[in-house]
Amino acid sequence: METDKLIAMLASNAEPVAPGAVRRRYGAAVAGGGFGALLLMVVFYGVRPDLRQAAADPMFWVKLALPLALFAAALVAVTRLARPGVRLGWSAEALLVPVGAIWVLAAVALVSAAPGARLPLVLGSTWVSCPFNIAFLSVPAFAAAFWTMKGLAPTRPVLAGAFSGLLAGTVGAAAYSLHCPEMAPPFLGTWYVLGMALPAVAGAAAGPRLLRW
């Protein structure tokens, strides 16, 4: 086909585009992914029975704040990566703030603990399952984030996949924190971070294949 004809054809079906399309799609993806994660958490793990008492402990909110802060940074990052020609900006560096904060808390807890009590602080009683449970709960958000990114225009597929995966991981971790009984910062700084990193790594690997357009 000649280029002029193509242009005429494209111009003849140019419905106006509502502004904010990227933001709206991510709103829907996050809502769907979050709902899916909560549903899986309730069905497979159950909300912790002592939620009411736990909510009085500041550490419960720290545990929720860690994935939510990372979620905010990842959300900014994906909306930028979804648009051609937009720089990633500070949203990648911003990930270091919550992770750094939890590591500082973890270091304080480890230093002030008796030497024999340190390893239990890191391992808790659920370290074997925690990262995999988080990764499992992130599956609905992972699918939603990839589906959304696929309908947009990422020009850096590895990064776009990694941040889509991370976004899903933070949703999974936030949902899992309502079940998980662990409260020690060294545990959160290790296994929560690892659990959120798993979908991010999977996303980076899948990005170039799944996000072509």
Partner: peptide
């Protein structure tokens, strides 16, 4: 033609606050 089509299909990813040339360039490069 392929790039024109991509520009057309992805026009919802253009943000009016962003320089148009940067957007078009990134699509063409991709």
């Amino acid at each position: 033609q392929e790039t024109l089509l991509a520009v057309h299909n992805q026009r919802h990813t253009y943000d009016a606050a962003q320089p148009l040339t940067a957007w078009v360039h990134a699509i063409a490069r991709y």
